[in-house]
Amino acid sequence: MKRVIIVLAVVALLLSILPACGGGREVVNVYNWGEYIDEEVLEQFEKDTGIKVNYKTFETNEQLYSVLKQGGVSYDVIIPSDYMVSRLINEGMLEKINMDNIHNLTYIDESLIGMEYDPTGEYSVPYMTGTVGIIYNSRLITDEITSWGALFDEKYAGQILMFDNPRDAMGIALKYLGYSLNTTDKDQLMEAYDLLVEQKTFLQAYVMDQIFDKLESGEAAIGPYYAGDYIIMVKNNPDLKLVMPEEGTNRFVDAMCIPKGAKNKENAEAFINYMCGVEASLKNAIFVGYTSPNIEVEKLIELESYEREVVYPSDEILDNCEFFVNLPQDILDLYDELWIKLKK
């Protein structure tokens, strides 16, 4: 009897949690990277459309993936990066977007649509793009840096930082060796792994966000990071320089998608359309510091000349860039296996 009461109480509690949403008001549930939108744009969207935005943030593509995979949450708009978009498409986790509702698509750089990660261009609309470069302190390193090789040079022992995630770290080693970022050749991957093992012996640390502090304070002298973030760092330490390595680098697109089973698909499309508008794109580009895919923004945005070089790299640099695509499961498993082996 006692147990029955407890079980009933638990069930009642669960039932009261499940249909938490509801209510008459139109909503859109958005899941984006942290610090990746100008909040004024959200307020303006609510005012203009009457749709309430429930806004949540994530830190990595993999975190986004595991949240979607575990279920139990319902988002209407998500903003994963290129390779994660293609993984979500392959696993049938995305809804096709009705592009007739995205009038502002005309503003979006055509060369970014229908790329390898979303070949038909039906599942995603670009939100931001950018590149990865080497950031170094020109007071601590007086040599001219031109190559990824600097990150694997024992001369800078104890001063080098490296990405603390397998895809970016392996990608850099692969690029340095002259291979594709998306290689599925296990020998090439092993070669890249060996390079990382050697690098680890004289590496200062594996970092993500900590790189801001460590490069700005001069604790470390060199490390790879997203080029847009260099603009923030250089304001705090003018000695910092950004280089696009001669071997070529990774270019990324973060794109807006609608996950399968989204409850407010039309509102999601209204949101995506709004974000593609000139005004919203401009505000977000100024706030984030990455490159907006909106072609009008390039003309309107006020940037100092060094900033413009970072945000709008030359065609020569862009042609030398490679995008990540999703890898087959056995290669993903190998990545994780090698990464854990490297770090244990």
């Binding site: 990595t60 995979k69 895809r167 499961q329 993903l332 990545y335 296996e337 854990i340 770090k343």
Partner: peptide, 16 residues
């Protein structure tokens, strides 16, 4: 890495 890192990598790593 420590155990906590290892476990976190399984949930938030690329292989999931």
């Amino acid at each position: 890495i420590l155990l906590g890192d290892l476990i976190e990598m399984q949930f938030l790593g690329s292989a999931y």
